[in-house]
């Protein structure tokens, strides 16, 4: 084995050790794997070796504590101290490793920093809302208001990577040294120092900017889209469409005040919003999903908002509370 292989195996072993940790940096690991095709094979061998070790652990536990070690290692002077400690440790209940890892916040001072920097970034913070909203303050003074029934993950040393499911209104301090990226559905929204709103639901993502500008990119978009203040993007992965249109900035984030405003929005999207913001669940036939709605719904009373919507759209509201259904009126 040459030194290079040895180096690869050492790195693979460190990645394997880090992978059990909740704070494992999977992106850096992916990059490491991509750097050299031998990396993945080395990682497999290390992981399989450890796997075998664990399979055989019941018959191997005596190794190193028995007389055989004293024979092969007569100079094992500290061994006496070792065995007493280990003897005491054996009594410990063998509680699940994963469970304990989960609660551990890891200091970012792992070794190997020179070999492969950033094995571990600080544990991500996950925010999840039920029927209410939550205000999140970042260390740099930026604020985020997370919509009801939404979740936001904040990752990275500088809190510079986020993932959103649901809605949120962002007010981000501009810092050229800390480009922020937010993943929402299949979009990445970045280059941020601004005020904007994102709604990510199913395959649809809406981005609306009220101040500054953002860049929106995606592997499914041919080129990044730049959105300035007063512009909004509606992206629909299922339909394969992305459209930019003007938005009324005073309407952006108005869900905080119990109002949802639309301009030519597909009904499916409005109904999904009603579920998120007002907790009302509505079914509808596929034929209605792309019907367009323009107007403002007041969502203090979800059922009332739904009745308003049905009326404006000329639709019939069937079913009952908890299981509403929008239907084409029989003509």
């Amino acid at each position: 084995m040459n030194r290079h292989d040895d180096q690869i195996l050492a790195e693979a072993a460190r990645w394997h050790l880090a992978s059990e940790d909740d704070a494992m940096d999977w992106d850096a690991f992916t990059l490491w794997l991509e750097a050299d095709p031998r990396h993945s094979a080395a990682y497999d061998e290390i992981a399989l070796s450890d796997d075998l070790l664990q399979q055989h652990s019941s018959v191997l536990e005596d190794v190193g504590t028995e007389a055989e070690v004293e024979q092969t290692r007569p100079v094992a002077a500290p061994a006496t101290g070792d065995t007493s400690v280990e003897g005491a440790e054996i009594v410990r209940p063998a509680f699940g490793r994963r469970l304990r890892w989960a609660g551990m916040a890891i200091a970012a001072t792992l070794a190997a920093v020179l070999v492969v920097p950033q094995f571990i970034s600080p544990a991500p913070e996950v925010y999840q809302t039920a029927a209410g909203t939550q205000k999140i303050a970042l260390d740099d003074g930026s604020t985020i208001i997370l919509a009801p029934r939404s979740s936001l993950t904040v990752e990275g040393r500088d809190q510079d990577h986020m993932a959103l499911s649901g809605g949120a209104l962002f007010d981000i301090r501009h810092d050229p040294d800390r480009p922020l990226t937010i993943t929402a559905g299949r979009l990445q929204i970045s280059d941020i120092g601004t005020r904007f709103d994102i709604q990510a639901q199913d395959e649809r993502v809406r981005v609306a900017v009220t101040e500054g500008k953002v860049e929106v990119s995606s592997e499914t978009l041919s080129a990044p889209v730049h959105l300035a203040a007063g512009k909004g993007l509606l992206y629909d992965a299922a339909a394969g469409t992305a459209s930019v249109a003007a938005v009324r900035t005073q309407d952006v984030g108005d869900w905080q005040n119990g109002r949802l405003s639309y301009d030519d929005a597909p009904l499916a999207l409005v109904v999904a919003d009603l579920r998120r913001y007002a907790g009302v669940k509505v079914d509808m036939p596929d034929a209605l999903r792309d019907r367009r709605f323009s107007g403002t719904l007041v969502i203090g009373d979800g059922d009332a908002a739904l009745r308003d919507l049905a009326q404006v759209m000329g639709l019939r509201l069937g079913g009952s509370a908890g299981a509403w259904r929008l239907e084409q009126p029989a003509s």
Binding site: S49, D50, T109, A111
Partner: peptide, 20 residues
């Protein structure tokens, strides 16, 4: 912590070597 990691990485490497 880094000392522990170094020990464990070495151990994993040696086990893999023996099995290989």
């Amino acid at each position: 912590r880094s000392g522990v990691e170094k020990h464990l990485a070495l151990a994993m490497k040696k086990l893999r070597q023996a099995l290989a």
